[in-house]
């Protein structure tokens, strides 16, 4: 795939800004798995702000589709069973590990949290291991 620098950097800047905005207005870490996991548990009394943020994510998707649809031009080659397994692993793993690419990768590293740095090194490593071994064994996505 073509190498691009400006878009990832600018997109990353927007992600950082959005996470700062959530901290400024609501005092919370912008970790999507934590926000969604807390929302799905239905036990905490703070579901309303979680719902507002998650709705914002979905609405942002609508805006992206309307203004720059190429960002959502998904070329999903994975089979349904692989997608289901991936969803399960991502769901269980992110809750067990207290964070995902956003909570650990953006906010945690941004706060120089040692826990988050270790988590990010681990999920990047196992992500690389998964992507590489699938490519080597099956010659593409399964």
């Amino acid at each position: 795939m073509e190498f691009t620098l400006i878009k990832p950097l600018f997109g990353g800047f927007l992600l950082g800004l959005a996470a700062l905005s959530l901290l400024f207005f609501n005092g919370r870490v912008a970790g999507v798995s934590g926000i969604l996991g807390g929302f799905l548990s239905f036990r905490k009394r703070d579901t309303l702000w979680r719902f507002a943020f998650l709705t914002g994510l979905v609405a942002g998707g609508v805006l992206l589709l309307a203004t720059c649809p190429e960002t959502l031009d998904l070329n999903l080659k994975s089979s349904p069973p692989a997608v289901m397994l991936a969803g399960l692993l991502v769901g269980i793993g992110s809750r067990m590990g207290s964070g995902c690419t956003s909570g650990h990768g953006i906010c945690g590293i941004g706060r120089l949290s040692q826990r988050s740095m270790i988590a990010a090194v681990i999920f990047l490593s196992s992500g690389i291991a998964a992507a590489v071994s699938i490519d080597l064994v099956f010659g593409g996505l399964i």
């Binding site: 798995s33 992206l64 692993l89 793993g93 590990g97 956003s102 988590a119 998964a130």
Partner: peptide, 24 residues
């Protein structure tokens, strides 16, 4: 947990935020 999360992420290329954005 991070290990499992990474395996799922690398398997298909989706993590929680992008998947919600792609719902549309």
């Amino acid at each position: 947990g991070s290990l499992l999360f990474g395996l799922g992420w690398g398997l298909v290329g989706f993590c929680p935020g992008p998947a919600l954005v792609a719902l549309v």
